[in-house]
C-alpha cells in the first residue's frame, strides 16, 4: 500500500478532481480520509491509500495530480512538500513586495497573500502561505534571512 497526503482547496469538486486521474489510470484506491480537523487556511489535508505501484506509475500519478494543482505533501514517510505560513511585519509594500515575492518564488511558491496597512506611514503586516519542496526548505529560510536584513522585515514562521 502507498499512503499519500494531499492538500485540497476547501471548495466543492476538488476531491473528485484529484481522484479522477487516479481512477482513470486503473489504480486501486483503498481509502480516502478527510482530515477536516486539521484544516488550515482554507485547505483541507486528505489522506489517500492506494495499492502498491511501480515507481514509474507512482511518479506518473504524482505528475498528473500536480498538473491539476493538487499539493502532495507526503508519499509514505517521505515528505515532499511543506506548507510554510508567514506573518511579515515592516514596510512590506514600500520595500517592493513584488521583489520579495519573486525572490521567495525562486525556492517555493507564494500561493496566498493578505495585506494589512492600518496607516500609510506606519509599518504594515502581511500573511503569506508558501509551498516549498522539502529539499529547498533551507534555501527558502536563507532567502528569508537575507530579505529580513536587507529590508528590515520580521518574518514570523510557522514550525
Amino acid at each position: 500500500m502507498i499512503i499519500l497526503d494531499l492538500e485540497l482547496k476547501d471548495t466543492p469538486g476538488e476531491l473528485i478532481k484529484a481522484l479522477t486521474p487516479i481512477s482513470k489510470m486503473g489504480i486501486n484506491i483503498h481509502s480516502v480520509i478527510h482530515l477536516r480537523e486539521k484544516k488550515v487556511d482554507g485547505r483541507i489535508p486528505v489522506r489517500l491509500v492506494v495499492g502498491d505501484l511501480e515507481d514509474k506509475i507512482l511518479n506518473e500519478m504524482i505528475n498528473k495530480l500536480e498538473k491539476l494543482d493538487v499539493t502532495i505533501t507526503k508519499v509514505n514517510t517521505s515528505i515532499r512538500k511543506r506548507d510554510i505560513d508567514l506573518v511579515v511585519i515592516g514596510h512590506v509594500v514600500d520595500t517592493d513586495i513584488r521583489d520579495t515575492i519573486d525572490r521567495l518564488n525562486k525556492y517555493g511558491l507564494v500561493i496566498d497573500l493578505d495585506l494589512s496597512m492600518p496607516d500609510p506611514f506606519k509599518e504594515s503586516s502581511a500573511r503569506m502561505k508558501i509551498i516549498v519542496d522539502s529539499e529547498k526548505l533551507n534555501d527558502l529560510y536563507n532567502e528569508l534571512d537575507k530579505l529580513s536584513k536587507e529590508k528590515n522585515l520580521l518574518f514570523i514562521k510557522s514550525f
Binding site: 484544516k39 488550515v40 487556511d41 505560513d85 506573518v87 511585519i89 515592516g90 493578505d114 494589512s116 492600518p118 509599518e123 504594515s124 503586516s125 502581511a126 500573511r127 502561505k129 520580521l154 514570523i156 510557522s158
Partner: peptide
Amino acid sequence: EGITKITPEALSMANKGGYTI
C-alpha cells in the same frame, strides 16, 4: 529575536490564518 516589533495587526493576520504569535 524579541517581541518589540509585534503589532496588533500582525496578531490579527496570524489569527485569520488559524495561528497566534
